[in-house]
């Protein structure tokens, strides 16, 4: 595998800023109302009721984080031999914490016998789920960033910007997909297979067509990543917003 040198035309900071603000403005016409909605729900419920299993969630996140950090920092030989593979590792693992804490939280939320009651209150489970998922993704985004900083410090051949963008893409690609499946499909099997499928497909692609996979992941330029990234974030927020209004148009049972 040829080490890919970092000489892609990198857009100036101003240009990135301009592009981002453009996309955000286009994509989020109701940005304020969404933030306001989230804030209202947060104020109304408070931290304790919004995240009732916070202890378990913290514990799980710490466990996974320790696992990721040790794997990431221990696999030096492998990452240095296969230059692109470290990005693949970052991409594949970026949504893992999100995946696990979301599944855990859903399991407790939707499998509970209080479902009917919570569904007939003013703020129903769809609204709560939207707020929780937003919080989880922000948390994972922060965690991933810390992870990347640690990786960059340990492996000097990694570009922070690139790793950051790849990780963010992975996280929001996955979380947007999750939202789409959650909202459009009622079968539990499909939901679970998305969670398992993410890792499976990535691993499969990584092992069996390594060259192709590395090529795709590594040859997309930074600016393209930035655009994909911002679009994904916008798409994600839009779907969270949709989820809050979910029951006006759709049935539940």
């Amino acid at each position: 595998m040829k080490k890919e040198k970092f000489k892609i035309d990198f857009p100036s900071d101003e240009e990135i800023a301009r592009q981002i603000s453009f996309i955000v403005k286009e994509g989020l016409p109701k940005k304020e109302t969404f933030i306001k909605q989230v804030y209202t729900i947060y104020q109304q419920l408070g931290f304790r009721f919004l995240f009732p299993n916070i202890t378990e969630l913290t514990f799980i996140s710490i466990l996974i984080a320790i696992f990721l950090f040790t794997t990431g920092l221990q696999a030096r030989e492998y990452f240095e031999a296969e230059s692109g593979s470290v990005y693949t590792f970052i991409f594949v693992t970026s949504p893992v914490v999100y995946l696990v804490i979301c599944s855990f939280s859903w399991y407790h939320m939707w499998d509970n016998r209080t479902y009917e009651l919570e569904m007939t209150c003013k703020y129903d489970l769809f609204q709560l789920t939207a707020v929780r998922m937003l919080a989880f993704s922000i948390f994972c985004f922060a965690l991933n960033t810390v992870f990347i900083i640690a990786m960059v410090n340990s492996y000097h051949h990694i570009s922070f910007v690139k790793a950051f963008l790849i990780s963010t893409t992975g996280l929001f690609l996955f979380s947007t997909l999750t939202l789409l499946v959650l909202m459009n499909n009622k079968s539990k099997i499909i939901k679970i297979s998305l969670l398992v499928g993410w890792i499976a497909v990535n691993l499969f692609a990584f092992i069996w067509s390594k060259n192709f996979y590395l090529l795709v992941l590594n040859n997309i330029s930074i600016s393209v990543y930035a655009v994909i990234n911002v679009s994904l974030v916008v798409l994600y927020i839009k779907h969270l917003q949709k989820m809050m209004q979910f029951r006006k148009t759709e049935g539940v049972a």
Partner: peptide, 8 residues
């Protein structure tokens, strides 16, 4: 109090 919060 949880349900009260949910009920707005």
């Amino acid at each position: 109090s949880y349900l009260g919060a949910l009920k707005g």
